[in-house]
Computed example of a mutant assay.
Amino acid sequence: MSAPSLPPCPTPSKPAIALPEGACDAHCHVFGPGDVFPYSSAATYRPDDAPKDKLFALHRHLGLSRSVIVQASCHGTDNAAMVDALEAGNGNYRGIAMVDRDVTSAELEALDAAGVRGVRFNFVAHLGDAADKDAVREIVEKIKPLGWHIVVHFDSHWLEDLAPFLKALDIVTVIDHMGRIDASAGVEQRAFRLLLDLLEDERFWVKVCGSERLSRTGPPFHDAADYGRLLVERFPDRVLWGTDWPHPNIKKHMPDDGELVNLLKIIAPTAEHLQKLLVDNPSKLYWPEVL
Rank of each mutant, 00 (worst) to 15 (best):
residue 1 M to I: 05
residue 4 P to I: 11
residue 7 P to H: 03
residue 8 P to T: 11
residue 9 C to D: 15
residue 11 T to Y: 15
residue 16 A to V: 02
residue 18 A to S: 15
residue 19 L to D: 06
residue 20 P to C: 02
residue 22 G to T: 10
residue 23 A to C: 12
residue 24 C to E: 06
residue 26 A to C: 08
residue 26 A to M: 05
residue 28 C to D: 07
residue 29 H to C: 08
residue 32 G to V: 00
residue 34 G to H: 06
residue 34 G to S: 08
residue 35 D to P: 01
residue 41 S to C: 07
residue 41 S to P: 08
residue 42 A to H: 15
residue 44 T to F: 03
residue 44 T to W: 02
residue 46 R to Y: 11
residue 47 P to E: 12
residue 54 K to G: 10
residue 58 L to A: 04
residue 59 H to T: 01
residue 60 R to M: 04
residue 61 H to E: 14
residue 63 G to M: 06
residue 64 L to R: 02
residue 66 R to F: 03
residue 66 R to Q: 09
residue 67 S to N: 04
residue 69 I to M: 10
residue 72 A to W: 05
residue 73 S to D: 05
residue 77 T to P: 06
residue 77 T to Q: 09
residue 77 T to E: 09
residue 79 N to I: 02
residue 84 D to M: 03
residue 88 A to E: 15
residue 88 A to C: 14
residue 93 Y to C: 07
residue 93 Y to V: 15
residue 100 D to L: 12
residue 102 D to C: 10
residue 103 V to C: 12
residue 103 V to Q: 10
residue 105 S to N: 15
residue 106 A to K: 09
residue 106 A to T: 11
residue 108 L to R: 00
residue 109 E to H: 09
residue 110 A to T: 11
residue 110 A to V: 05
residue 112 D to M: 08
residue 113 A to N: 13
residue 113 A to F: 12
residue 113 A to Y: 12
residue 114 A to Y: 03
residue 114 A to W: 04
residue 115 G to C: 00
residue 117 R to G: 07
residue 121 F to P: 07
residue 122 N to K: 05
residue 122 N to S: 11
residue 122 N to T: 08
residue 127 L to W: 14
residue 129 D to A: 14
residue 130 A to S: 14
residue 131 A to Q: 02
residue 131 A to W: 00
residue 136 V to C: 03
residue 139 I to Y: 00
residue 139 I to M: 01
residue 140 V to Q: 01
residue 140 V to Y: 02
residue 143 I to F: 06
residue 147 G to W: 04
residue 153 H to N: 10
residue 154 F to M: 15
residue 156 S to L: 04
residue 158 W to D: 13
residue 158 W to Y: 14
residue 159 L to K: 03
residue 161 D to G: 14
residue 166 L to W: 08
residue 167 K to P: 00
residue 168 A to S: 15
residue 172 V to H: 13
residue 174 V to K: 07
residue 175 I to C: 11
residue 176 D to G: 12
residue 177 H to S: 13
residue 177 H to E: 14
residue 179 G to P: 01
residue 182 D to M: 08
residue 182 D to W: 07
residue 186 G to L: 12
residue 189 Q to H: 07
residue 190 R to Q: 14
residue 191 A to F: 03
residue 195 L to G: 02
residue 197 D to C: 00
residue 198 L to V: 05
residue 200 E to Y: 04
residue 201 D to I: 00
residue 202 E to V: 12
residue 204 F to S: 02
residue 205 W to G: 04
residue 206 V to M: 11
residue 207 K to E: 08
residue 210 G to V: 10
residue 213 R to C: 05
residue 217 T to I: 10
residue 219 P to K: 10
residue 220 P to L: 03
residue 220 P to Q: 04
residue 227 Y to N: 03
residue 229 R to Y: 10
residue 231 L to Y: 00
residue 238 R to M: 01
residue 244 D to I: 13
residue 249 N to T: 13
residue 250 I to A: 13
residue 251 K to L: 06
residue 251 K to G: 04
residue 253 H to T: 11
residue 254 M to V: 07
residue 256 D to V: 05
residue 257 D to F: 04
residue 260 L to T: 09
residue 265 K to H: 09
residue 269 P to N: 01
residue 274 L to Y: 03
residue 274 L to M: 07
residue 275 Q to A: 11
residue 276 K to F: 06
residue 280 D to W: 03
residue 283 S to Q: 13
residue 284 K to Q: 14
residue 286 Y to L: 12
residue 290 V to M: 11
residue 290 V to K: 14
